[in-house]
Amino acid sequence: MSQTLERSPEAPRSSETKRSREPLLDRMPQWIALVLVGGGGLLVWQLIVSLELVSRILLPGPPETFGEIINSALGIVQGDYVFEALWITTQEVVLGFIAAAAVGFVLGVVVGETRFGQKAIMPYLVGFNALPKVAFAPVFAAWLGFGINSKIIMALFIAFFPVIVDTAAGLASVDRDAVMLFRSVGASRWQTLVKLKLPNALPFIFAGLKTAAVFSVVGAVVGEYLGGGNGLGELIRLSAQQLRLDRVFALIFYLSLIGLALFGLMSWLERRFVFWRKPELLDITTVA
């Protein structure tokens, strides 16, 4: 088999010759580039603080902020109130995310797979998506109280739409000939869905789940800002009122870790289940 596994031996060489023509910045390994940009950012931050362009109270410098991050870390390890808040917010985010994933997936399949869903449900969903969803936070607080339930619903509310859209788009992305092939071997609609369309939609579904992972943090925090409780959002709000911005930044750091962890878990699952597709570098942009 001469045409077996066509991996051209020319490929690495040609990319090397191309490399040496690229500027130094493009040639360096990624980790150095990352450190360079990150360090640059910190430097600018420190300069702004050192030159007192902004009052130290409003913008604590990197050392103060990192000090506070470590401080909080010690507290979290010892199980103090930061730990409590982190745990509450994590529950809100995770449960909201799971609910968003479930609702989004089911509605996505209905909308993507049935003409009725496409004609009668999708227009409402699109209209819904145009609503300023954040404005509903007080409504959920009024309905469900100041506990975690109102935040879970808020996270669900903000995060489920991308899952619907991506699931439906994934189902629609199926190759027409593949559908014909399934019909030609007598596949039922259910078989076509389960053995062809859903596996084919997996990359899209995971893209939606990654967006939902980030959105559910937004939902939970907005829920906390506007609906009280004992989560990280409430702590951040209080710290900001006390002008303890080093704390605010430290808490936001931990808040981001929840979203990043969820996002990372989705990326890991995607690599496991969508093994036939090379991970795309562009995926990183969805974190932002």
Binding site: D177, A178, L181, S184, G186, W276, R277
Partner: peptide
């Protein structure tokens, strides 16, 4: 669709998974 028909298209349409 009939079981005694075999069909093939321009693209192989193999399932990548």
């Amino acid at each position: 669709p009939r079981t005694d028909v075999g069909i093939m298209f321009q693209q192989a349409t193999l399932l990548p998974w």
